[in-house]
Amino acid sequence: MSHEQILDIRNLTVKYHTFTAVSNVSFSVNEQDFIAIIGANGSGKTTLIKTVLGLLNAQEGTIVTPTGVTVGYLPQHTMSLDRFFPATVDEVVGMGLLAKKRFPKILSKQEKQNIEDVLHMLNIQHLTHKRIGALSGGQQQRVLLARALVSNPDVLILDEPTSALDHNMRKQFFDILSHLNTSHGVTILLVTHDIASASDYINRVIYMDQKLLFDGTFSAFCEDQKLSPFIHTHSLRHKKMGDES
């Protein structure tokens, strides 16, 4: 089954003063792709997605999305980690709709139902009136994912969403993302250091070190001899062999 292109990045270069964080990167994203963007610290992953989101300006290159494509975003290191922040779960999830609305910012019946549906889907409906700072790391990530999902985005961009989660929580989180991808058709761009956990769910890997060094399937990534130092560091060949046996 072929999918329409939903994002096209051509010759993108992003600099901080004289330092080039992203250099001449080109790739496209199709509907229902589940892409892991990986690379070492400082390789430009976060810069790349922040530029795609419009948070940073590119010095060169283009980013094209078809008209009407909506994006949900789950940032790295959120304020919710401030456990004293006075915001309930329903206030935070509602933000996902209200922040995008024009004045007067009032939720319709349908939108309130959307919030309830998303909370149910992520199994956090019982936390509605809890203060977000009082929740565990895994619950907080689900709340923030609910905020990103409540506006029914076509594309979901996540920046290291599992870095603070333990192994079980990571698996649960990736299961949710996989469900969104396969059952709801959400296209996912995931910046992660944890390619080993993500590899069971993704259909593409983008590996970068300022430049784009690899774009393809996880199997092809593991076979690529040029990338063997990275693969060795992350014990990925072993994982792939384990999967195949």
Binding site: G54, T78, M79, A87, V92, A99, K105
Partner: peptide
């Protein structure tokens, strides 16, 4: 709502 969103997370508000 805009001020709340920005106070909670400025990047999310911008996006």
């Amino acid at each position: 709502h805009d001020l709340f969103s920005m106070t909670f997370e400025e990047d999310f508000a911008k996006v």
